[in-house]
Design a protein around this nucleic acid. Structure first.
Lengths: 138, 138
DNA sequence: TTACATATGTAATATTATAACATTTAATTA
DNA sequence: TAATTAAATGTTATAATATTACATATGTAA
């Protein structure tokens, strides 16, 4: 019972959560909160809080990540991302393109090792790789 | 000649840079920009810009790191940190303690591998490990 | 000295995010 | 079903973080 409710909580999105997520999913770049706000003003999203509340929830359930160094948000591309999940991104310093790294088992192993070495427990991580991307290297 | 100047630029700090760095060095936790501002008001630092400009420069030369997820700043503990250097931290989710990871050759190797795999070049990285620390685990 | 780059000071303002509280909607259960 | 509670929403105001723009000063090189 408790479990069922929890599952629902994760899967059933409210109206605001739904439209914020849809917008992020169709965007090909990270969006800032106020840019989301302006984009969605015609759909009834009128105040920052509506956006921030939706984002908080979406991040909590693992559907969205925040790119901390940019104060911007992206939809998670990893369908099996778990709640409060780990996030790893590359960010091109030239063209600003951001992509999520999905094959990060090796990273996780290393980071767990680092945490364990200090006798602490790794809960989650945020990794931002500033790169020059393939296209910009040419 | 060019080199010498560059070296000087890295080593000779201006008054504001100096006092901001001193403050960060004696703090045992990351400080926020406005907290630095209030702390230094008696030393003639009166406007946010003075703090932000000093921080920018200190970050540029590798003396300070920004904890992106906290909008807070710490002095680099790694004496041989190079300009625009890589940063890796653990952040305890219970007690907020932050420490810099310094032995991160292994991480760097992995991250370089990830970047190279996409045919892109790694310039720097920001890694924030959210942990429960040794003390808080008890 | 003149010219130039770098650093500073200051005021104003832009951007990002949250607090507080009233209202509505949804879920639970008596 | 109606009553009760929890969760989500709407709205206003404001806090916290960061930058623009411009005037002035200081240091460095020609």
């Amino acid at each position: 019972m408790k479990n069922k409710q929890l599952t629902n909580k994760k899967e059933i999105l409210t109206k605001n959560q739904e439209i914020v997520l849809k917008l992020l999913e169709k965007s090909n770049e990270p969006l800032k909160a106020y840019s989301i706000l302006f984009n969605l003003s015609e759909q009834g999203v009128k105040a920052p809080l509506q956006v921030y509340r939706a984002l908080d929830r979406l991040i909590e359930i693992g559907k969205v990540h925040k790119i901390e160094s940019k104060n911007a948000f992206v939809a998670c591309i990893n369908s099996n991302c778990t709640a409060n999940s780990n996030a790893a991104f590359t960010i091109c310093e030239d063209c600003d393109a951001v992509s999520e790294i999905h094959d990060n088992k090796e990273i996780l192993k290393n980071l767990n090792y680092l945490a364990n070495r200090e006798k602490s427990k790794l809960n989650k991580y945020n990794l931002e790789l500033y790169i020059t991307c393939k296209n910009c290297l040419k």
